[in-house]
Simulated assay, not measured.
Amino acid sequence: MLDIAIIGSGPAGLSAAINGVIRNKKVKIFGNDISTSYLYKAERVDNYLGMFGVTGREMMESFYSHAKEMNVEIENKKVLEIFPMGDFYMLNVENEFIEAKTVILANGITKANTLPGEEVLLGRGVSYCATCDGPLYREKTVALIGDSKHAEEDVNYLSEICEKVYYIPLYKDFGTFGENVAILADRPKSIAGENFVEKLVLKDSELEVSGVFIIKESIPTTQLLKGLEFEDKAIKVNNFMETNMPGVYAAGDCTGRPYQAAKAVGQGTTAALQAVSYLHAKEKEA
């Protein structure tokens, strides 16, 4: 069991991990490659103390190198859902279930918009993980909506097991795929079905499918952990980065404005130290 599970590999998550490791806790980060960070793409950063004039890429690589030097474990996998289990939390990491005593959410700004029918039919034909649920649709027809090139690996995998795959890329410069993959330059509008997915409604057409895979770079926080409180679309925290759920903390852009690396690093440190204090208090109670 992990002492601290960190969701997100940006400045807040890396800062939290470093401070958790310093305090001798078993820590692991779950997140995307650092190249997906908004900071990584910044042309120049002038307002981070002691690192004047660096590029966002240089800054992120420096943060990442620091974490690796301290043996922080980083896994480039997506956390699909977090379940409260009483005294600990269970993380569904692409269908691998991992236990953690505390959780730090440092997953940045996530796109919370969902399609009509998406939440209702989640688990009944709607999936966020092709690796997890793909085998359920062997020799069937499915659709996959992808918001970045990271989704293309899932398209290729589904094309190996499904009869037909409709791919709706929400980005430019997508790759080429097998004969049973149809690429549609259309916009998804809704997902329909009585008890299970029956069709994907697009702006200009409708697709009769057994399943709809929605592959995003990150799962919307509102769907990640049920019961979490929000304020102005940001995770509600106090000055100690505590959320309304015991043992759950948040840091960085997911807590709202200002969206600054310095704020994220500071909040990550605070979240980790509060998680450590929480763990020590629990140990005394036992």
Rank of each mutant, 00 (worst) to 15 (best):
L115I: 06
A192F: 08
N76H: 14
S35F: 00
E152N: 03
H66K: 01
L224F: 00
V142N: 00
K172G: 09
T141F: 08
Q274C: 03
N95E: 14
R138Y: 13
I109A: 08
G252I: 07
N32A: 10
I145S: 02
N95W: 07
V27H: 00
D46T: 13
L2P: 05
L105G: 02
L80C: 10
K263P: 00
H150V: 12
E206Q: 08
G20R: 01
I22C: 01
A234W: 02
Y166V: 08
K164E: 10
I183S: 06
R257V: 13
E139C: 05
L228W: 05
E163L: 03
T269S: 11
M245Q: 10
K189H: 05
E285F: 11
Q260N: 08
A100M: 14
F174M: 02
S277D: 14
D87Q: 12
L184S: 08
D33A: 10
L105K: 03
I183L: 11
A5L: 09
G13H: 00
N107I: 00
Q274M: 15
R57F: 03
E61H: 09
M59A: 07
T176R: 14
P135R: 03
E208F: 09
P188M: 04
G227W: 04
C254T: 02
L91R: 11
K282I: 10
L115T: 02
I104R: 00
K25Q: 14
V201Q: 02
M245H: 03
N195F: 12
L39T: 15
K189M: 14
V165Q: 05
A185K: 15
F240M: 15
F83G: 02
A261Y: 04
M241I: 05
L170P: 03
N195A: 12
V181A: 04
